Simulated scan of single mutants.
Amino acid sequence: MSFQRVPGLVSIVVTVYNKLPYLADCLTSLLNQTYTNWELILVDDASTDGSYDYVMNWLNGNEPLLREGKGIYTLRLPRNIGYAGTITAGMFLAKGEFIAIQDADDLSHPERVAKQVRYLDQHPQIDLLGTNYEVFEDGQPDRKLPVYWLKYGDQIGKVYAEGGHCICHGTAMFRGKVFDQIGGHTRRIEGAEDYEFIVKAIKPGAKNVDNLREVLYYYRKHQKQRSRKYFGKSQQAHDYDA
């Protein structure tokens, strides 16, 4: 018997590894989504800073939400397996017609999920949809800066055909069937798992992916973020030039 996804349900997958200082902002931004048909799947990759305990306390403090029937699920991995394995574990638990990615140190606009679902409903040929986003330095949420590396429409295919990248992984929402068909993130390319996943999702001609031009996501820059480990300041300057 084949797996049947829940129509209209958005499974929001959040991976956590030592992100304690940022979890309150992240979770609150999801709690404030205007789209109400969602489930939250939070996978902790054996954090050592108390992140998992914080999440459990946060959930206990939001019992009214749980009583309203929200699906909020947590999984604590027994050992650290890295980003690719962690996010793929979360996607295996996702029941929704749509799967949305949310990084634990970032924030989503209250209308993010609603507008992405609306666009995907209106454009059945699109399988994966990113959004525009803004960047802010940790501790300076009111000083958000635009980015200029994203592309839209037919331009996306040209960029990926040349080995480039123009969809912000943290903003992505995709149809659950994409995961069912291609699987999750590779563990063979540490540091480029997000790029590889999007490339796998793109069909010939790249007519099945797009970005919304509206800013619906906020990327936090801080010293401990994962991208600095692999790409350093040069990548930061390329991606977030403002």
Score class of each variant (00 low, 15 high):
residue 1 M to V: 09
residue 1 M to R: 07
residue 2 S to K: 15
residue 4 Q to A: 12
residue 6 V to Y: 04
residue 7 P to F: 07
residue 8 G to C: 05
residue 8 G to S: 03
residue 11 S to I: 02
residue 12 I to M: 13
residue 13 V to K: 12
residue 15 T to C: 14
residue 15 T to S: 14
residue 19 K to G: 09
residue 19 K to H: 11
residue 19 K to V: 00
residue 20 L to N: 12
residue 21 P to D: 03
residue 28 T to L: 12
residue 30 L to Q: 09
residue 31 L to F: 10
residue 31 L to Y: 14
residue 32 N to K: 14
residue 33 Q to F: 07
residue 35 Y to A: 12
residue 36 T to S: 15
residue 37 N to K: 15
residue 38 W to V: 13
residue 45 D to R: 10
residue 45 D to K: 12
residue 45 D to A: 06
residue 50 G to I: 00
residue 54 Y to R: 04
residue 54 Y to A: 10
residue 55 V to G: 12
residue 59 L to F: 03
residue 60 N to Q: 13
residue 62 N to C: 09
residue 63 E to S: 12
residue 69 G to K: 04
residue 71 G to P: 01
residue 76 R to F: 04
residue 78 P to R: 11
residue 78 P to G: 13
residue 78 P to N: 13
residue 78 P to S: 14
residue 79 R to Q: 13
residue 79 R to L: 07
residue 80 N to Y: 10
residue 80 N to E: 01
residue 83 Y to M: 14
residue 84 A to L: 05
residue 90 G to C: 03
residue 92 F to C: 15
residue 93 L to F: 09
residue 94 A to W: 07
residue 97 E to G: 12
residue 99 I to H: 06
residue 100 A to N: 05
residue 101 I to D: 03
residue 101 I to P: 12
residue 103 D to L: 05
residue 104 A to W: 00
residue 108 S to Y: 02
residue 109 H to A: 15
residue 110 P to S: 09
residue 110 P to N: 06
residue 114 A to W: 04
residue 114 A to K: 11
residue 116 Q to K: 15
residue 120 L to G: 11
residue 121 D to A: 13
residue 126 I to Q: 11
residue 126 I to F: 07
residue 127 D to F: 06
residue 130 G to Q: 01
residue 133 Y to G: 02
residue 136 F to P: 12
residue 137 E to G: 04
residue 137 E to K: 13
residue 139 G to H: 06
residue 142 D to L: 11
residue 143 R to W: 00
residue 143 R to V: 10
residue 145 L to P: 04
residue 146 P to R: 05
residue 146 P to L: 09
residue 146 P to S: 02
residue 149 W to D: 04
residue 152 Y to G: 02
residue 153 G to Y: 03
residue 154 D to N: 14
residue 158 K to F: 02
residue 159 V to H: 00
residue 159 V to A: 04
residue 162 E to I: 00
residue 164 G to S: 03
residue 164 G to H: 02
residue 164 G to I: 01
residue 166 C to Y: 00
residue 167 I to A: 09
residue 167 I to W: 00
residue 170 G to N: 07
residue 174 F to A: 08
residue 175 R to D: 04
residue 176 G to N: 04
residue 177 K to I: 12
residue 177 K to R: 14
residue 179 F to R: 10
residue 179 F to D: 09
residue 182 I to L: 05
residue 183 G to H: 01
residue 184 G to I: 00
residue 185 H to Y: 15
residue 188 R to K: 15
residue 190 E to D: 07
residue 193 E to D: 13
residue 194 D to H: 08
residue 194 D to R: 09
residue 197 F to A: 01
residue 198 I to Q: 05
residue 201 A to V: 03
residue 202 I to C: 12
residue 207 K to V: 05
residue 209 V to R: 05
residue 212 L to N: 05
residue 215 V to Y: 01
residue 216 L to M: 06
residue 217 Y to G: 06
residue 218 Y to I: 00
residue 219 Y to W: 10
residue 220 R to K: 14
residue 222 H to V: 08
residue 223 Q to H: 13
residue 223 Q to G: 14
residue 224 K to Y: 11
residue 225 Q to R: 14
residue 225 Q to S: 13
residue 226 R to F: 10
residue 227 S to N: 03
residue 230 Y to M: 01
residue 231 F to L: 13
residue 231 F to D: 07
residue 233 K to H: 08
residue 234 S to V: 09
residue 234 S to R: 15
residue 234 S to H: 09
residue 235 Q to R: 15
residue 236 Q to T: 10
residue 237 A to S: 09
residue 239 D to P: 08
residue 239 D to Y: 14
residue 240 Y to T: 06
